[in-house]
Write a protein that binds this DNA or RNA. Sequence first.
RNA 1: GCCCGAGUGGCGGAAUGGUAGACGCAGGGGAUUCAAAAUCCCCCGUCGCAAGACGUGGGGGUUCGAGUCCCUCCUCGGGCACCA
Length: 850
Amino acid sequence: MPYEPSVIEQHWQGVWDAAGVFTARRDAAKPKYYVLEMFPYPSGRIHMGHVRNYTMGDVVARYKAAAGFSVLHPMGWDAFGMPAENAAMERGGHPKDWTYSNIADMRGQMKPLGLSIDWSREFATCDVEYYGQQQAMFIDMMEKGLVYRKNAVVNWDPVDMTVLANEQVIDGKGWRSGAVVERRELTQWFFRISEYSGELLAALDGLTDWPEKVRLMQANWIGKSRGLQFAFSTAGAPEGFDRLEVYTTRPDTLLGASFAAISPDHPLARHLERHDEGVAAFVAECRKIGTSEEALEKAEKRGLDTGVRVRHPFDTAVELPVYIANFVLMEYGTGAIFGCPAHDQRDFDFATKYGLAIPPVFVGVDAEEAPLAEAFVPLKSEPVRYIRGFAGAEVQTGAEAVDLAIAFCEERGVGRGVTNYRLRDWGVSRQRYWGCPIPVVHCEACGVVPEAKANLPVELPYDVTFDIPGNPLDRHPTWRDCTCPKCGAAARRETDTMDTFVDSSWYYARFTSPHAATPTDLAEAEYWMNVDQYIGGVEHAILHLLYSRFFARAMQKTGHLPAKAIEPFNALFTQGMVTHETYATRGADGREVWQMPEDVVKTDAGAALRDGTPVTVGPIIKMSKSKKNVVDPMSIIATYGADTARWFVMSDSPPERDVEWTASGAEATAKFLGRVWTLSERVAAMPDAAGTGDDDLLRAMHRATQDVTRGIEGFAFNKAIAKLYEFTNTLSKSSAGKVAMAQAMRTLAQLMQPMVPHLAEGVWAMQGGAGLVTQAPWPVADPAMLVQDSVTLPIQINGKRRAEITVPADMPASEVEKLVLAEDAVVKFLAGQPVKKLIVVPGRIVNVVI
RNA sequence: GCCCGAGUGGCGGAAUGGUAGACGCAGGGGAUUCAAAAUCCCCCGUCGCAAGACGUGGGGGUUCGAGUCCCUCCUCGGGCACCA
């Protein structure tokens, strides 16, 4: 019987389903293991990135199940978000219908992959049952003081009269209207994540099974700094502004200050804006820069002298000009800084531009004061010589000087040492329809009141339209009308919905009790939490993971998670992205219109659409729906079967690395799997007779067991697969007897099972394996079968390989030395020269130094 | 601009500071076949007849020994708080 994936895959999936082998069960007799891959956004089509991500998780889940764990491996949908509304605007229809139909499509595409998922736990974040519980938690968080309202800026499209996401702002213009985007202030809802800054930072140290780079990125994002906060007294400032609070991480450079700068959103700037046309014009100009930090940093650094002066805290005779500067953030520190151009490149550029003095504070240890061509910014750990220091030794490191400067200033009542964090509170308000409604009521008498829990869920109304831009909840005729849960008077609902990051910040907890009438069932959470292995893209290294860590803390505070789940993800693996070239044509307005790879034909003359429209080939970037550079895995599954797709995505690149998708290789994988199948048939048909080399084959089997197990444990799936190729080749060339061959074949099936489960079941059955290979206990290598009696050592002379020698593995180094020096090639090479040094690394290498 | 990664044959990649290129793909040669597909065997970093020399993005350093550690530069990718 030839290898027919479509037949065997369907067959075994039916068998697994009937036996319910992937249903997660609390089992007192086994340790539990919770494997989770970041759940997908239901775009409607799965792509190779999904196949890679979910196969990876599946390999872990199947391996752990075989290794004796009670495994939880769930799946759900991150289903709220902008694309559904965009689809409704572009093509009509309703976000809800679009989303659920996409979910059905994607589920239909995922099922044939044969993933060991407990589908009974599936949910979508747009299910009322899910977001209703989210609303309950929001109210609990309000009670615990974790939620508040404040003003914050948004991108405002003055033509479409709507709030735009950063991605919808292109070159400062609205993506649809093309209108210049304005910054507008709105009262918005915030989570007090900044209250946990210190803890979220400190706890990173305990996440030893997270990639170091992710911990570093999070630490930098939280951005703890120690500095001095102090007030300048002002001159010529409006009433009420006789002091200007600034924060600096380099108080040691105070005597190098040549200007002060405030954010365009600083209260002083706001005040001046109302009374001074020049300031108003400049501030208006600043507000045209987008709301993102990136836009701000990339914009030309500009400032406007306000005419206000501040007096230097050490010498009030010295006055510094106060600028409004477009690069000063209101959210960080006090929204005001002093500039020390000699030791900060941005300040240097600024001072140069506006003709301000650049007095150096310190110079290199052996250097003299000299005019600077650029800012002198040595590492804080490097000693420098202070020529305008005021605390500590003349020569000291920047770090020492900072500490002493803070102490000096505190002693004299000039400010205080302050620990600051870059991390800002989490703004969760979105002026959009397709999200979880914020369960709050605005009452004229009682103010802002949480909805009563009994009235939850606050359900999204279905009867909305997207023909006019803006939030349909705002213009719904009746949805906003409600009664105040406090006083019973007529009131209005909040129309903001929550950031979709909220949805994905607790889904891992919900999977432990997906149908509970409360956000979580504590007994279930106690058993299943934490996620033992979380797998997802590096692009989530900061925001999603940080928000989830915060949410676990908030859920503990509100009683929805046990204390042990304070860090919800024990181990994290960040897989690389599946990338692809991008293709774009030019729209009528000259802007890029992205094209799908399947619609692009590449020839020697270049790339074009089928109708001949020329296509620009863009950079290789992560596959994303917005850039349309996605490849459809369904055709590979249809042609070769799921096992080929699974094996192929696991076999090539190391999982943490990006992989550029190319179609070649899938066929080769299919051939290999076919070869395993035929080999299995051959072994099954062997006469029950003795052969030769049984012991060699069994040694190879134990070696393969060892290597594959290590590969899977270490997330080196590509290496595990390389070992399986080797073992398969050994097996097919072996002339061992039937018993050994069948045993090796069954082990091969077991070792391949996590990657290609359907084929493995087929081989297992063919070789008379008991039950399902999916449920068979993982093979264990016998250490005695791994021992090698002799080793080959390369011999280097002055670091260059010149010869080799084979010796017993346990030969002492002194014996090896004698043999090496007696070796013909060595003697010849030395030609009588004396040996200066002889290095023997046991079992590894010998280096002769002459 | 800031933070974090990555760079090794024609290609994907392997290599606790210890033989660079495991394993796979592509390619070349051969066997089998009327022929092809499939399968099997052999070769396959560059230069060189060879001995050998050179080779892990560029430059410098540490070391008996560097793809691996340090410094620096280049290129590509991710994130930058309203894409998910």
